[in-house]
Write a protein that binds this DNA or RNA. Structure first.
Lengths: 155, 155
DNA sequence: TATAAATATATGTTACAACATATAATGTTT
DNA sequence: AAACATTATATGTTGTAACATATATTTATA
């Protein structure tokens, strides 16, 4: 069933529909993913932070600010996010002796194992858009890139 | 700058990028909209509920459940949403004499005026994707529809 | 070098999302 | 009609997002 049918065709125009469609579709895609994360007792933001810590572990340890810059959410409360991960033993956290304002955060073995155990999520991520052809995904990415460029947000 | 550049090209494949791109772009679009709502001291969900109450006022009064079914969010806590709108005087709420379990909720004059005062949002909504051509938006909508159909969610 | 400005992180607060459970009214079954 | 199931809404609870503000440390300026 199309969104148009679902919402009784009450759109002013194609652009209006596009906006709602983006919101609605993304929310739906995200819902399934969130359920998986929930089973592993971790929030989306904690997961993102942990992924960053793994992705950049060649540059470890990382500061709170470094992680913050790479989070999808603007102004994520990384300080408390790392707190939660620390409580679970998934990251280590120390004072940075070079700059005692900073923290040195690193993913632990337990954290790496945890991410491994979520391997299913990776497959899930790759499969969520599998109903599109390669060409269609590329077109989707092109359109999304164009939208973001058109917004004129900093960065 | 493309998402690819921003995130250092660390995507496994085009599908993976597509998923992150959807999340990221939608979040960015939504952010500006949320800021506008915030200025008017109303949350996104309250706004959605109020829009539903206006959109279906030919069938007014509406029950909580009727509104709930039409919310974008699954399992929205419409009972308390309406509570907030009621506190602001934007809706009326009465017991439905035909079925005393139900509430009869209606948008008030103040509620209608309030939505009118947010007219700018409407223009904003229509303009957020204005960087795309009509043809591109249609293609975007087609792709999004296809994604949602491919998910196999109920409804 | 004392003072001010900037930076990095932490903490306080409020409202809300998400979940479970409770209550009241209606519908169904025997 | 009594007992049970279902429905509609409300309430309780917990964690967290979003915001502001505070603290500690470093850097810049006079």
């Amino acid at each position: 069933m199309t969104l148009e049918e679902e919402l009784n065709g009450r759109f002013r125009n194609e652009y209006h529909k596009g906006l709602i469609n983006l919101t609605y579709t993304t929310r739906q895609l995200n819902y399934g993913f969130l359920q998986t994360l929930k089973k592993h007792d971790i929030t989306e933001q904690q997961y993102n932070a942990l992924r960053i810590l793994r992705g950049f572990r060649s540059q470890a340890p990382l500061s709170i600010g470094f992680i913050k810059e790479r989070m999808l959410d603007r102004d994520s409360d990384v300080s408390r996010l790392v707190d939660k991960l620390y409580d679970k033993g998934l990251v280590s956290r120390n004072e940075n002796p070079d700059d005692r304002r900073q923290k040195s955060v690193e993913i632990t073995e337990k954290g790496l194992t945890f991410l491994e155990s979520m391997g299913g999520c990776k497959n899930m991520e790759d499969n969520m858009l599998k109903c599109l052809t390669e060409k269609e995904v590329k077109e989707l990415n092109r359109l999304l890139d164009k939208i973001r460029e058109g917004q004129g947000y900093p960065k």
